[in-house]
């Protein structure tokens, strides 16, 4: 790893620890990390749009012979100027008098999106799911196959549970009739079905959050191996001077802040007593 990369990796290690410091309480190190992430993401996205959208579509086009030409000056695609104009009209939102103009491009965009989305979403997210829910029960494979036969999604038992769960969950959301008697019992089954679904999502979410922490540990482990030699204490000789300067500066910052926090805490205790 060259020195420049190592320096940035060290800074990333600092930002990782700064972000996790939020688990204790909100603090300036966390704020710094948060602002850097937001700023870098916004800046990266803006430049990406500029180079992937505006420049090749509107200003420059590469010809078959590899030359570039400017769309504005020698345009054989003048219709490209129409979406460009609509895009400019979006900026009228910043004017109180003319912000109504921005509704035109918005209307066009929403209209096109709805026109594309409605039939495809209806077909793929509603109809196909309905067909699958109402599929014939597979009596020949009722208990399912494989190691976890009872979790076989193709089994008749799974199909039956899906139908019962869907109907019960829908009944739970039917509020035009009091949830009493058989109707109430089915609604209760519906809420249990929903809870099982939320439980599965919660389990996966825990796994996702732990995964992030594991990745950061792996990253810090890699950084530590790069920064320190096999003894685990001495900075890698390739980076000794710069590493020590940067590392100890970070340590000084953290220790300084922690000392300040302790002093505030002790003073607060003394006042309250």
């Amino acid at each position: 790893m060259d020195f420049s990369t190592f320096l940035w990796t060290t800074f990333a290690a600092f930002l990782t620890l700064a972000t996790y410091s939020f688990l204790y309480k909100d603090n300036p190190f966390y704020k710094i990390a948060e602002h850097i992430v937001t700023g870098v993401a916004a800046g990266y996205f803006a430049i990406l749009l500029w180079h992937n959208g505006l420049v090749p579509k509107l200003w420059f086009q590469r010809l078959d012979d590899g030359d570039w030409w400017t769309l504005w000056l020698n345009s054989s695609k003048p219709w490209y100027l129409i979406p460009a104009l609509l895009g400019v009209l979006m900026w009228t939102r910043f004017s109180k008098n003319y912000q109504w103009i921005s509704r035109w491009p918005m209307a066009l965009y929403i209209g096109i999106s709805a026109g594309i989305a409605v039939p495809l979403e209806m077909s793929n997210r509603v109809n196909k799911q309905l067909y699958d829910t109402m599929a014939d029960l597979d009596w020949a494979n009722f208990l399912g196959q494989g190691r976890f036969f009872f979790l076989d999604t193709a089994s008749g038992l799974s199909q039956l549970l899906i139908v019962i769960g869907v109907v019960a969950a829908l009944i739970y959301f039917f509020f035009s009739k009091a949830h009493t008697g058989v109707f109430g019992a089915t609604a209760k089954l519906g809420i249990w079905t929903l809870m099982i679904g939320f439980g599965a999502s919660f389990g996966f979410t825990v796994m996702a959050r732990i995964s992030l922490f594991i990745n950061r540990m792996q990253f810090l482990g890699g950084w530590g191996a790069e920064a320190f030699n096999a003894s685990g204490t001495t900075p890698n000789e390739n980076y000794t001077a710069w590493f020590q300067l940067f590392f100890w500066l970070m340590v000084l910052l953290v220790v300084g802040y922690a000392t300040r926090e302790i002093i505030i805490h002790v003073r607060g205790k003394a006042k309250s007593s």
Partner: peptide, 12 residues
């Protein structure tokens, strides 16, 4: 992991 559960119906 957060979004896994919501895509299982499409697998089914």
């Amino acid at each position: 992991g957060v979004s896994t559960a919501q895509y299982y119906p499409f697998y089914g």
